Amino acid sequence: MFNIISYLIFLAAASFITIDVGRRCYHAGRFYLEYLIHDKHLCLTINRILLGCYYLMNLGYIAISLTTWERISFMEQVISVTAIRIGNIMLILCVLHYINIFTLYLLRKNLTIK
């Protein structure tokens, strides 16, 4: 019973975080890409690819996270296990976001040197 409660809380929070962060990065990323690349059509294509990859990575992590869930016996475990899993998702999102920004910056730097 506690596992089901934990799954539902985790899925609701993970879905909200994934969709909200993806939407925000997609809209804000358009301007960043246009600043770096100066080609609106290419920027739109890259931004859509990044959004698709972002959703696939998160759905994969959420699915793997659900398969490795330990048995929960107390209400305190529901809170701690769910908080740890949601925290892992937020850390992964943060790292992936900064890797994307740094990679795009390096690509732009290499394009301007040539």
Rank of each mutant, 00 (worst) to 15 (best):
F2W: 11
N3C: 03
N3Q: 08
I4Q: 14
S6Q: 08
Y7N: 09
L8W: 10
I9A: 00
A12G: 10
A14C: 11
S15Q: 14
S15G: 15
I17L: 04
I17V: 12
I19P: 02
D20N: 11
V21D: 02
G22N: 02
R23V: 10
C25F: 04
Y26I: 04
Y26G: 01
H27Q: 12
H27Y: 15
H27N: 12
G29L: 01
G29A: 07
R30A: 11
L33V: 00
K40V: 09
K40R: 10
H41K: 12
L42I: 08
L42N: 07
L44K: 02
T45L: 05
T45W: 06
T45D: 08
I46W: 03
R48Q: 08
I49C: 01
I49W: 00
I49H: 08
L50N: 04
L51F: 02
G52T: 07
G52P: 07
C53M: 05
Y54W: 10
Y55W: 12
Y55P: 10
Y55Q: 09
Y55C: 07
Y55M: 02
L56N: 05
M57P: 07
N58C: 11
N58E: 10
L59W: 10
L59M: 10
I62A: 05
I62Q: 00
A63H: 09
I64D: 09
T68C: 08
F74N: 15
F74L: 10
F74H: 15
M75V: 13
V78Y: 01
S80W: 13
S80V: 14
V81M: 04
T82S: 02
R85K: 15
R85M: 10
G87L: 11
N88G: 03
N88H: 12
I92R: 11
L93E: 04
L96W: 02
L96R: 03
L96I: 06
L96M: 13
Y98G: 06
I99R: 08
I101W: 06
L104C: 05
L104A: 07
Y105P: 05
Y105H: 13
L106F: 15
L106G: 03
L106A: 12
L107V: 07
R108H: 12
K109C: 09
N110P: 01
L111S: 09
L111D: 04
I113G: 08
